[in-house]
Amino acid sequence: MARKITIQHQLGFTLLAWFLGLLMFFPIFWMILTSFKTEIDAIASPPLVVFSVTLENYIEVLSRSNYLKFFSNSVIIAGGSTLLALVVAIPSAWAMAFSPTRHTKNVLMWMLSTKMMPPVGVLVPIYLSLKYMGLLDTRFGLTIIMMLINLPIIIWMLYTYFKEIPSEILEASRMDGAKLWQEIIFVLLPMALPGIASTMLLNIILAWNEAFWTLNLTAANAATLTAFIASYSSPEGLFWAKLSAASTMAIAPILILGWFSQKQLVTGLTFGAVK
């Protein structure tokens, strides 16, 4: 028997959804609000909702540090690690989805298990490895690390997408004379494009927001926007308004990207859950 959905139910759900949505958005909203306050207004108690808007924090932050450099590092590392990860993940997800062996599930679990380990556990070996290879505080070094960190998730997501593609279509392409690379480029990728796009977006967001490795493996040259925020939080922790301005500038690009691609992201995250 189908459940009756009454107006009251619908209203209840809508209100609940709005409440939860606003609850989650509130810290971001408050941060953006604070970034336009003066330092005195920012720490006022009780907090001020009505205040005189000022841009002085942004001017101060921009004049004091090279925002564009952090920004470009973030773009290069998040984008580069994502592209590199896809190059590795697409063939491996393809192999596991279409030619599974008895051990495929184990390999997947093993990959996922690497995400369960606290990163600090391998900080020293990775730090030393990068140091000996001369890759500390380089964009290249961080791109590689970021790619390796997110690779398990990317492979898992792509594997799930590829599983949904009927293998007969790939076999048909093989019968039609497609070589392996042609099968992947002309048949698999176009069919998996929505999945690949949402995997890419998710990974860019993860890499963009990553802080632990960025803070530990970079100093001046390869520091990303997370390091940029961090540089305001420790010595100047009391300057709430400037910290808020820096944070807003750091999250703005990814917020905009996320806003425009929210449809892709939602399908990506709920893929396979409902069908």
Binding site: P166, E168, I169, E171, A172, S173, V187, P190, M191
Partner: peptide, 9 residues
Amino acid sequence: FQSYALYPH
């Protein structure tokens, strides 16, 4: 093929 296996795109 039984399922036709056409390229949907």
